[in-house]
Design a binder for these strands. Sequence first.
DNA 1: GAGTGACCAATTTGTTCATCTGGTCATTTT
DNA 2: AAAATGACCAGATGAACAAATTGGTCACTC
Lengths: 191, 191
Amino acid sequence: MAVNRKKLILDAAAKSFSQFGYKATTMEQVAKIANVGKGTIYTFFTNKEELFGEIVQNLIFEMKQEAEESIDVNLSFYENVHRALYRLLKYRLEHQFTIKLLQEEKEIGTPAVLEMVSKVEAEIVSYIKEKVEIAIEKGEIRKCDPELTAFMMLKIYIALIFDWEKRHKPLNKKEIAELFQLYLFKGLSKF
Amino acid sequence: MAVNRKKLILDAAAKSFSQFGYKATTMEQVAKIANVGKGTIYTFFTNKEELFGEIVQNLIFEMKQEAEESIDVNLSFYENVHRALYRLLKYRLEHQFTIKLLQEEKEIGTPAVLEMVSKVEAEIVSYIKEKVEIAIEKGEIRKCDPELTAFMMLKIYIALIFDWEKRHKPLNKKEIAELFQLYLFKGLSKF
DNA sequence: GAGTGACCAATTTGTTCATCTGGTCATTTT
DNA sequence: AAAATGACCAGATGAACAAATTGGTCACTC
């Protein structure tokens, strides 16, 4: 085995998905980019969807690493959540692949893409959930449903970063951090 | 004038929009339901979009009334916000018209519908914003950007009521009230 | 003059058919 | 023999054209 054909195919597919999206990427195109016969792809992947799935799986792994790197044990729970979420969402924003994915989800609604996007979201929630559980155990935050709390954290973050931007001037990183702390940790109540 | 033709048309249009959505409602259909010549509609409304707009305007008015009715000066700010929001979202859920609207927005993305949905949302935020401003003045809550806070309140509420339901068992009224209080007022922080 | 529906331009919808694409497998290459 | 391949096929897709529908107008009626 002179070259790793599977990796060749994965790279080619990632490249094409990033550039043209899931639907507009043909298996022939992937084969051509990978310098591989079309049939060869099917010796490694059952079908187009599985090939796609494997790339997403990879993405999830990288995102987790990003998040993990951003965590600093000396900082508070809320500070770490903020840092991790910020990095995660920035990661999404910076990677052509995720941008194309989100775009295709909204504009075309390709089922396979829809499924993967929710999968990624579920993974993020699951990841935060773990951190929430630890924080509760450590007594860093109040008792609460970890999954629901993780879910709300993500939602609040997305609202602050993406939704607010749609009709208002974007918030900067510091503002987002402060607002996240205000709304989720300190609360609006004065006491 | 034996009958109020304008009202007749508005009722007919509301009925048809509720049943079939904006796009699938034809002016001929409205005319037929209203027992009116098609041309007559155009003596009251410039075009289909304006007719639609007037019905939405009406909806907003009714929603405001609903909210206003639910407010009790003896209760705390957060309690009132919760009562108003709950009533508002329940109203949305209960009215075929709003359901069809939301459905059409997601499934077809009819531009006129998209515009109206954001208009309704903007109105809700603006309404909450006023209440937030008063609460800040009265010292009932911390100082914060009233519009952003109103925006976040709505987002958090929608997340609790609609988004969470998509993949989990729905929260009941009491749970929503408590969670809303936890996340937005008390905060996750223990101190 | 308020009300109307036949009429028209423009858009939408339905249909057809040539092209394309995911996936297979007999054949070739290593 | 195992791995790789691309010609091949059934079904999906979409471009192009035709037919039907619809928003909006206006000459005419009551």
